[in-house]
């Protein structure tokens, strides 16, 4: 069964396309990270899943129900942590949780929920208007957890949390996943997603530029490495030689330095032997793994329509230097 499925989902605001023809499938029970810079269309997509915003074209299903026509069937089964929300300042934290429980028809103990999201019983008695940003985030997370939802949709859950709070949030997501809950959460910060996600989708300017596991994304980069070789002589002559080798994507020569991207990890050795065979004196070899962060940057800094293939990624990585 699929937890979330969108097909051709599109949202236009006048001239601006916020979400462009999005096809996305999130399987039951997986933890899916929805990545993208601010303004990429993540919240708009989530708002369409929750029927807060109506798509211009395309459709979406959540837990098998149509997001627009059957939203009343979706909401009791889903826990939502929205972005840019506010609490009811005059009502206590506990009252918020009681209200959530009442609407979901459960009698979950508010104090237990408070504890799970790291709020004390005293915090629960205070009006939520006195809460800090992080506490509001925790309270809303608690409201999402009420009634043990089948699917958690969290929009930028780390907002307002300190590093410790972010780790707690990640533990909570892992814990929910172990209980069989599907988790769909968005972030503009890769490392928050990396630690907990089975798969990630990268959204940029409304378009999905990559969907894969973290390892898959790494592999797609082909080891994700750039090599910089320092030769004894000016390196220009060696450029054509290495470019012709299999698994080498992109080559530049400046002075005695030859820089190249390797798609296939095994190509590194081939490059070194080929140069040695051609009589070059190699003074130094430096290899840099492309970090996920730069992959993310590469995927999302493109002008538009980046395919997310290794070529595009490495080119972008180079260009970003």
């Amino acid at each position: 069964m699929t937890a979330i499925e969108t097909s051709g989902l599109t949202k236009e605001y006048g001239e601006i396309t916020a979400v462009d023809d999005l096809d996305l499938t999130v399987a039951d029970g997986e933890v899916f990270g929805f990545l993208g810079p601010n303004g990429a269309g993540k919240s708009t997509t989530i708002d369409m899943l929750l029927d807060l915003t109506r798509p211009t074209a395309g459709s979406a299903t959540v837990l098998g129900y149509d997001a627009q026509d059957e939203s009343d069937d979706i909401s009791p089964r889903v826990g939502v942590l929205p972005e840019g929300f506010d609490v009811y300042p005059r009502l206590s934290g506990r009252r918020h949780l009681e209200f959530a429980g009442k609407t979901k028809g459960t009698d979950d103990d508010p104090d237990e929920i408070l504890a799970r999201v790291g709020l004390s019983a005293e915090d629960g008695d205070r009006p939520a208007g006195d809460y800090s940003k992080g506490m509001r985030q925790r309270l809303a997370t608690g409201m999402a957890l009420v009634g043990d939802p089948d699917l958690l949709i969290m929009d930028e859950p780390s907002t307002g949390l300190d590093p410790h709070g972010i780790r707690e949030m990640q533990d909570l997501v892992r814990g929910e996943a172990e209980r069989g809950t599907t988790v769909f959460f968005s972030s503009h910060i890769l490392e928050h997603v990396e630690a907990v996600c089975d798969r990630v989708g990268v959204l940029n300017e409304g378009e999905l530029v990559a969907v894969d596991t973290i390892d898959g994304l790494r592999a797609e980069l082909g080891g994700g490495a750039t090599m910089a070789l320092t030769l004894a002589d000016p390196a220009e002559w060696a450029r054509d030689l290495v470019t012709s080798l299999e698994g080498v994507a992109d080559t530049t020569a400046s002075g005695r330095t030859l820089e190249l991207s390797v798609v296939d990890p095994a190509a590194k050795a081939t490059v070194v032997t080929a140069l040695a065979d051609a009589g070059a004196t190699i003074r130094d070899v430096r290899i840099e793994e492309v970090s996920l962060e730069s992959l993310f940057t590469a995927l999302t800094n493109g002008d538009e329509g980046r395919s997310g293939t290794a070529d595009a990624v490495t080119t972008e990585t180079e260009a970003a230097r």
Binding site: L52, S75, F85, D86, V87, A100
Partner: peptide, 14 residues
């Protein structure tokens, strides 16, 4: 405007 409607509509009420 405050955004609490998102919290409210994220719960079962429509």
């Amino acid at each position: 405007r405050s955004g609490s409607v998102k919290l409210l509509l994220g719960l079962p009420p429509n």
